[in-house]
């Protein structure tokens, strides 16, 4: 038992290496994940942006946080896809019949999700710089942004794990991501919530995306962050814990 535990991190590293190879050998997944958010960004900046009053003079700066969240929400769908394929193909059974920590294959997928989403986020930020995104934020603020995005990725990844483990078809494995991708539309990601009608506004202002977007936006533009960051963190950590516990329960049942 002890020896198996001692190897947990090296086993997880091997699993991470394996799925990173999958990603680099099918770079199209990174492209598919980033292309829609980038297209949205260009559409909003060059077509709709002129008509949207945000109170910020640069609309890309306003838009970018929401675009990043959308990219992450669609990126985690691949985690659930990869997990589902592993279960289908029987490779998980092979992993589980050799003496490694039982959860190492799962953690391998979770770490892979973090790394691949970080790559997508970087790609999108680069494109945003080309379209005029500028930030006066210092290193600490950027680190805070990275931290929030990482927590958000983890929270959604554990939801993706539940979907991947319990799906009965490939399509089912990815379907959970659609509502997540659309959450930013009913938030402060694209337009200020003040212009929305009552009930919609109430929903928008109290859902996690708004708090997260507002916190990231404030950090990037060097403004007072206020309570948003704590609300954002609370949402991320809360969702992550609930999803993690449920995912582990499903995993124990499946293997």
């Amino acid at each position: 038992m002890d020896t198996v535990k001692n190897y947990f991190f090296s086993d997880m590293g091997i699993m991470l290496g394996r799925s990173m190879r999958h990603i680099f050998r099918s770079m199209d997944t990174i492209i598919t994940v980033t292309i829609t958010p980038i297209a949205m960004m260009l559409l909003f900046v060059y077509v709709l942006g002129g008509a949207i009053q945000t109170g910020m003079d640069n609309y890309v700066n306003y838009l970018l946080p929401g675009i990043l969240l959308m990219a992450i929400a669609s990126g985690v769908a691949y985690t659930s896809y990869r997990l589902f394929m592993d279960m289908q193909r029987g490779i998980f059974e092979r992993f589980h019949s050799i003496p490694i920590a039982r959860s190492a294959p799962l953690w391998g997928h979770v770490l892979t999700s973090l790394v691949s989403n970080a790559i997508s986020v970087l790609v999108i930020i680069l494109v945003a710089l080309l379209t005029g995104f500028r930030s006066s934020a210092g290193v600490l603020s950027w680190l805070a942004v990275a931290g929030i995005l990482a927590l958000f990725t983890l929270a959604l990844t554990w939801i993706a794990v539940i979907a991947g483990l319990s799906a009965t078809s490939v399509d089912g494995a990815g379907a959970f991501a659609y509502p997540l991708i659309f959450l930013p539309f009913i938030s402060s990601a694209f337009v200020p919530t003040e212009t929305m009608p009552g009930p919609v506004r109430a929903f928008a202002e109290n859902q996690p995306v708004t708090a997260i977007v507002d916190a990231i936006r404030a950090l990037l533009s060097n403004q007072q962050v206020g309570n948003d960051i704590w609300i954002a963190l609370a949402w991320c950590v809360g969702i992550m814990l609930v999803a993690y516990v449920s995912a582990m329960r499903v995993y124990k049942r499946r293997v």
């Binding site: 090296s10 091997i14 394996r18 190879r21 099918s26 193909r89 029987g90 490779i91 092979r94 003496p99």
Partner: peptide, 24 residues
């Protein structure tokens, strides 16, 4: 197992090395 449990995206050599690493 009844259904081949190999990693399709890796090469044959990489599959074997991966298992050898997991078996330490």
């Amino acid at each position: 197992g009844q259904f081949a449990a190999v990693d399709e995206i890796l090469s044959g050599r990489e599959n074997l090395i991966m298992i050898a690493q997991l078996r330490h």
